[in-house]
Computed example of a mutant assay.
Amino acid sequence: MIQKLRNLIGLAIVSALLASCGGSADQSPVFHSETNPELLSEWHMLSVKDKTLQLGERVTPYDLNTPLFSDYAHKLRTIWMPEGKAANYDANDAFDFPVGTVITKTFYYQVPVGSSAKDGSVLRNADNTSQLLNAGFELPSVRLVETRILVNRATGWVALPYVWNEEQTDAVLKRTGDIKNLKLVDEKNQKKLFSYVVPNTNQCAGCHATNSVTRKIQPIGLKARHLNKIYTYKDRAENQLVRWQASGFLHGVPESSRVPRNALWNDTNVALDQRARSYLDINCSHCHNRNGAASTSGLLLELDSPNGLSLGVCKLPIAAGTGTGDRKFGIVPGKPDESIFTYRIASTNPEEMMPELGRSVSHDEGVALIRQWIAEMRGACP
């Protein structure tokens, strides 16, 4: 009897520890080393229980300083590694993650009061994922659209898109992608119809294969400069990289002063140039980098790319076609209305817009940021 009581007390302690981390004792994540489950729930990274979205054991949420724009969708990002495994820190590139790592990114919207997920109306409001998660992530208040999984197997990274069902109980693997017709509701209650596009597996590779030579898929946002920020966890607010190292998820993090950090694109307390460069870095540099698919264009948009021609200033386009909008240079200092940059990031024409994938509507605030950045540049083109 005494031993039985001790066992019960032990189980209670384990359950309490798991609860404090946001995990559930009956949801141990599963690394599928070869097979691709038809249902998202088979990974046990996320689950729906009592109409709330819950994370599995040791599944850790994270965020980026400046995120990629995706039709105003909010994003719940998580990472999980097998017990005893850890990633290795890198100052510039994506961290070196061990085989067995599973990354998820769930795209969702909050819905207007009185609406349901089936209504199709979704709010164009600020992303407050950490607050929703810490409050229980109640599904009646949100519409889950898709969850993308990146899993690191012995053969390399694999991208898998899962689309949430109308009942909001699970997501189904959709290799060919999907389209959801939604109504974006702004702060004035004005509605705009748009088609949210879930990428197919080949399109996932179009962005995540950041090196045009190797064509290997890898994470985009999991770099020091994107992750170096405070995140509000259930127990406390803490720098993500400090948290990861303390939990055994990451090795080799240097002193904080030596860790790069991207600016928040909408933080007006930060210099305009830093915000604009951070915005271009996360939205464009997966192709526009020294080894990327768009490297032949000569346009390099990583954070450390030098100012001048390679940044697009007074640069003639290469094979842009109608994407120029009859404008001569990528950036004309002081003249956003004469710059190709502002034309392409504002366009929703699939043959002209940049980025080429990942959005169906224009990011009005992002366009305004780049317009202001160009407007305040000094100089002139020949």
Rank of each mutant, 00 (worst) to 15 (best):
N291V: 15
S28Q: 14
S256G: 12
R327H: 09
K191C: 08
T66A: 05
S212V: 12
N202C: 01
K180N: 12
L39N: 14
I179T: 15
S339K: 01
G56D: 04
S195A: 15
L303I: 15
G84S: 05
V111A: 07
H44R: 14
L184R: 03
W157D: 10
L132T: 05
M45K: 01
S362N: 05
Q274V: 06
G298C: 03
R371F: 00
F31I: 06
D170F: 02
T35C: 07
N181P: 03
N65Q: 11
L39D: 13
A12R: 06
E302L: 02
D119A: 15
S121H: 13
A87Q: 05
N289D: 11
K183F: 13
G323W: 00
V158E: 14
F69S: 10
A16Q: 09
K49N: 13
H208S: 05
E356I: 11
L280Q: 07
A87P: 05
A263E: 07
Y108H: 09
L369H: 04
T104F: 02
C204V: 09
N128A: 09
L357M: 11
S195M: 08
D170K: 03
C381E: 07
A126V: 09
N36Y: 01
Y109A: 13
V197D: 11
D119E: 12
P317F: 01
N134F: 01
M1P: 12
R225C: 09
L301M: 14
Q54N: 14
F329L: 08
L222D: 12
S20Q: 10
S310K: 01
N36F: 01
G292C: 02
F341R: 02
Q131P: 00
Y231P: 02
L241T: 04
F137Q: 10
G366F: 00
A126G: 04
L241Q: 06
T232H: 07
K229A: 10
K188D: 15
L123V: 04
A87G: 13
L8D: 15
R143P: 08
N228P: 06
T214E: 13
L160D: 14
N239H: 03
P82L: 04
F137M: 14
W373I: 04
R236Q: 14
H74P: 06
E376C: 02
G358T: 06
F329H: 15
L55S: 12
L150D: 07
R261S: 14
S41A: 12
V259M: 04
P82R: 00
K180D: 12
R275G: 06
G120Q: 07
T78E: 08
L8S: 14
D364P: 00
L264R: 10
A135S: 13
E187M: 07
S141Q: 11
V332R: 01
A91I: 13
R371M: 03
F31W: 08
V111T: 15
Y72H: 11
L150A: 13
N88A: 14
I13H: 04
C284V: 05
P350W: 00
L369N: 10
G330T: 03
L357G: 03
Y72I: 04
M1V: 11
D170C: 05
D267L: 00
